[in-house]
Deep mutational scan, measured.
Amino acid sequence: MAAAAAAGAGPEMVRGQVFDVGPRYTNLSYIGEGAYGMVCSAYDNVNKVRVAIKKISPFEHQTYCQRTLREIKILLRFRHENIIGINDIIRAPTIEQMKDVYIVQDLMETDLYKLLKTQHLSNDHICYFLYQILRGLKYIHSANVLHRDLKPSNLLLNTTCDLKICDFGLARVADPDHDHTGFLTEYVATRWYRAPEIMLNSKGYTKSIDIWSVGCILAEMLSNRPIFPGKHYLDQLNHILGILGSPSQEDLNCIINLKARNYLLSLPHKNKVPWNRLFPNADSKALDLLDKMLTFNPHKRIEVEQALAHPYLEQYYDPSDEPIAEAPFKFDMELDDLPKEKLKELIFEETARFQPGYRS
């Protein structure tokens, strides 16, 4: 834990890192770190609560700039109880001085990944967590956004079992017609939660990839272990087919990539493993919904509104309290091709509203 900075004593240090967030945020305490930044909790002297502050230093890398800009653009436009918001952003007053960006968010005690390492969940908890994931996802999908990296560590939890989806750095506007060349190379989302079509096709992607990830998360809540822990690309596919069985001819016809289709045709026939054999203690309604989410063919996979209306979630289902976005989200430009200098300018502009004396 960093010592509390005395008023006016300059930035606090946390594990050798400068955290320049005073005077409003003090009493910093280390939480963890990701690929390009550290997260601390801090005391907000204005709202009198502890908050989470993520320090991001992305400006050396085009990919990190892209992810940072995506996350900020999306989260500043989203407003939903099951999606983490941005409360404040701290950065230098000029673009030349801006080396880091500090993002202030609600402090959540833990995440689903940490929880599943230590606790076996009751059916009631599984049901409530799944409902909140789908409630947040309904809003995301209504904005025409794909999260693309749903996994237990991106689901934040607090002691009252509130759940918030975080990390929109890989999110995209849904565009089933656009052929994202190089899709697989830039697709760094965790393999275990990846839909089979991501490994088999490169053309376009749809909201059904997020539903697949939610199915993987439900299976993990039922058993405290990942359902498809593939060691590499082909191993991942083999794990999936080992449980779902061989795809039907109709399902194979959806695979545009001939090499991928021929690979699947070359494999020995596998039978589907019954879900109640894998999860003998699970609620039968939970397994019915799991089956509809972990469907090989993305066109037959359940959609988020149908999933919310499934009998497993009937005690929570309330369409009048499951809000959607006001308007579909649009990125003005494809960020993939922009140089990091341009992305830095866009991050600077996007964060201006939090600067003292800002006038829109």
Rank of each mutant, 00 (worst) to 15 (best):
F296S: 12
R261I: 09
I84L: 00
I133D: 07
Q249I: 05
H80Y: 11
K114W: 10
A307M: 11
D167E: 11
V104P: 08
L116Y: 03
F59L: 15
V173T: 01
K270M: 14
S248M: 08
S223L: 13
F329V: 00
V39I: 04
T206S: 15
F228K: 00
L289D: 01
K330R: 12
P298N: 05
R353C: 09
Y233C: 01
R191N: 06
C254Y: 13
D20P: 11
H80S: 02
P229E: 05
N276Y: 14
Y102D: 13
L278R: 08
I86C: 03
S248A: 08
H269T: 12
K73P: 09
E305L: 11
N158A: 08
A92Q: 08
E350W: 00
L278G: 08
W192F: 12
G34Q: 02
P247Y: 07
Y358H: 12
P298E: 11
N144I: 15
N201P: 07
V14Q: 02
T63M: 13
G37A: 15
E349C: 01
N201Q: 03
L258D: 10
S41I: 02
K272M: 02
K55N: 14
N224K: 14
T63G: 13
R77W: 12
L335M: 13
M108Y: 10
G85N: 01
T26K: 07
L343G: 04
T68A: 15
T206H: 08
E60R: 15
P23R: 08
M108Q: 01
A327Q: 06
W192R: 15
V39K: 04
M38R: 14
T351S: 15
E12K: 12
L200G: 01
L244R: 00
K344W: 00
R24T: 07
L156Y: 07
C254T: 09
D336Y: 14
Y43E: 14
S266H: 03
I165T: 09
N281G: 01
H232M: 00
T110C: 09
Y131M: 11
V39H: 00
I89D: 08
T190R: 09
D321I: 07
Q97H: 14
P274Q: 15
Y233A: 08
R194L: 10
L218G: 07
L69A: 10
S213E: 08
N276P: 02
L289G: 07
R70W: 04
Y316K: 06
R77D: 05
S284D: 03
L146M: 13
K285W: 06
I209P: 04
A189I: 10
Y316F: 15
D124A: 14
F296D: 06
Y128T: 03
E314H: 01
A189G: 07
P274N: 07
P247I: 10
I240Y: 09
T94F: 08
E305D: 15
A5G: 09
T190Q: 01
G34N: 04
A286D: 13
G245W: 06
P176R: 09
L137G: 05
E349R: 12
A2Y: 03
L244P: 11
G215E: 12
R135Q: 06
V188H: 06
N144M: 08
T185A: 11
R359P: 08
D149T: 01
I302Q: 08
L28H: 04
F183P: 04
N47H: 10
P176S: 10
R91W: 01
R50F: 09
G242A: 12
T206G: 01
R50W: 12
I256Y: 08
Q119A: 13
K272Q: 09
A42K: 07
Y64T: 14
S153H: 05
A3H: 03
I83N: 13
N87T: 13
K99Y: 10
V18Q: 04
N253Q: 05
P268W: 06
T185P: 15
S248C: 13
D179N: 13
E326T: 02
S248P: 05
W192A: 05
I165P: 03
E305Y: 09
L335R: 10
R191V: 01
P229M: 06
M221G: 06
D100A: 14
T118N: 09
P328N: 04
A282M: 01
T185S: 15
G230I: 00
A52E: 05
L294V: 07
D179F: 10
C216H: 02
Y128V: 05
R77H: 04
D44Y: 14
I347W: 15
F19C: 13
I198G: 01
Y263P: 05
L155F: 06
L267F: 00
T110E: 06
I126W: 08
Y193A: 06
L200I: 08
I86D: 11
L218Q: 14
C216N: 02
K270F: 05
L200F: 12
M108A: 07
D88E: 14
Q119L: 14
N158M: 01
F168V: 01
G10A: 09
W212L: 14
Q315M: 01
A260I: 03
Y187D: 13
G22H: 05
Y36T: 15
D332Y: 15
R79W: 03
R301S: 14
I31Q: 04
N281V: 09
Q62Y: 09
D210T: 08
G204D: 07
R261G: 11
I126R: 01
I31S: 06
R359M: 15
F168T: 05
N281C: 06
E250L: 04
A92H: 03
R77I: 03
L335G: 12
C65D: 05
K73Q: 08
F296R: 05
C216Y: 12
S29H: 01
F329I: 15
V145F: 08
F296K: 00
P93N: 02
I140H: 09
Q17I: 07
V104L: 11
N82I: 15
L28Q: 15
R79S: 14
G136Q: 03
E314C: 04
S266W: 03
A309S: 15
D291A: 12
H232V: 02
A6D: 13
S29C: 13
A327H: 04
A307R: 08
G16M: 06
A9K: 05
R91N: 13
F59S: 15
A9P: 09
R191T: 04
V46N: 10
N276S: 01
Q249R: 00
A219V: 12
A42H: 11
L115Q: 14
P58C: 12
G204V: 15
K342I: 15
L200V: 12
L308T: 04
A195P: 11
D337P: 03
R50H: 02
D235G: 02
N257Y: 15
G8I: 08
Y263R: 06
S213D: 10
D162H: 09
L157D: 06
D106P: 01
N45L: 12
R50G: 07
A309V: 07
F279H: 05
R191W: 08
D210Q: 12
L264H: 03
S153I: 12
G242S: 12
N45I: 14
Y131P: 01
G85K: 11
R225D: 07
L289P: 00
M293K: 14
D124M: 02
V18R: 06
V39P: 07
Q132H: 15
D337Y: 14
V51M: 11
R15S: 15
P229G: 05
A3Q: 08
F228W: 00
G8F: 01
Y36F: 15
F348S: 02
Y312R: 05
Q315H: 12
Y233V: 02
R15H: 06
F228R: 05
L287Y: 08
I95R: 02
L258A: 08
R77C: 01
Q62W: 13
